[in-house]
Write a protein that binds this DNA or RNA. Sequence first.
DNA 1: CGGCTTTGACCTGCGC
DNA 2: GCGCAGGTCAAAGCCG
Length: 351
Amino acid sequence: MRKYMDNKKEELKFENSMSNSTFSDEIQGNSFAPFFDMPTCDQQGGGGGDQKGFMDLLGIPDEYTQSLLDWFPTPSSTTTATTTTTTTTTTTTMPPQQQPQEQPLPESSEVLNTPATPNSSSISSSSNEAANGEQIKAGHEEDQDQEKTKKQLKPKKKNQKRQREPRFAFMTKSEVDHLDDGYRWRKYGQKAVKNSPYPRSYYRCTTTGCGVKKRVERSSDDPSIVVTTYEGQHTHPSPVTPRGSIGIMPEATAAGFGAMTSSFVIPQPQYQQQHHHHHHLQQHPYMYSSQLPLNISTSTTNLNSSSFPSFIQERRFGTSSSASLLRDHGLLQDIVPSQMIRKEPKEEYNG
DNA sequence: CGGCTTTGACCTGCGC
DNA sequence: GCGCAGGTCAAAGCCG
């Protein structure tokens, strides 16, 4: 179906890696664990990885780590994963759990460099851009000064520093850029990335009211790696797999780990088996973003109990609606663990 | 015909 | 203030 994916594939046929993109820079700068050689989509398997290390980075207590490890069985033992120990110190500060779109995220959530400015106020209601999509802005009309020749662009927001939803990214080894995570996305833009031969694509969740966005770009450093960055929290269950949440995940929760959970689901062994022979498709999601999923936030302390579990709960993979699973490529199964990496403020736009 | 991608223009933040 | 780069808009076009 999605022919566009195919196109993508075409257009992005692997080439030699080149210089580095911003992303790569960030990543490299923080040295992340090497990727496993996942046989891209057709062969599943994947790699194990240093989940433990990952958990550590997340500040997840062993108990959870343990369970997570269960969720992340290491299929092929292996690999390279030498785990770099580079830790991302900064990762700890997370925004307090919040209702999706209820309150503006302090910029700090993004990283820590930017002092959580007091100006946070500006962002009108949080619902601003992330939540309702950018539609809201349409309302204003104050600045007409802009000639807006061809398109009438929305009035610009005043001096409010654009606030962003927390984001986290995953690096996936895949031939396709747009990984099917069970949600429906509409591409709304594509831009060339500086120092990278690969473009960055921008997607928005098509569900009305859900302002989750994601950016997808291929690492120029390793063309086989796709970096998917989620921003925002889904306010709804996956359309593709109604049962995806198997009821375990209340909306709030879903929203919480939001982008991540919803988008990246830890496979549930049982489920997988039940439905597919694809049970070997275990993924190892990895985030390297400075900001952890909302739920995990705030303090390493509560991070765990309430948040993490929920994280593991929603397993979309292996659900019956494996529409996604059945696809040949671009599955999150290809997600490869790496380490969380702090994004450089510089590179990262904070809004 | 609806849903989605494509794509150039426009907006915005930031560093110089 | 200028220019750059990232992010977004929306018309046009494609496709099932």
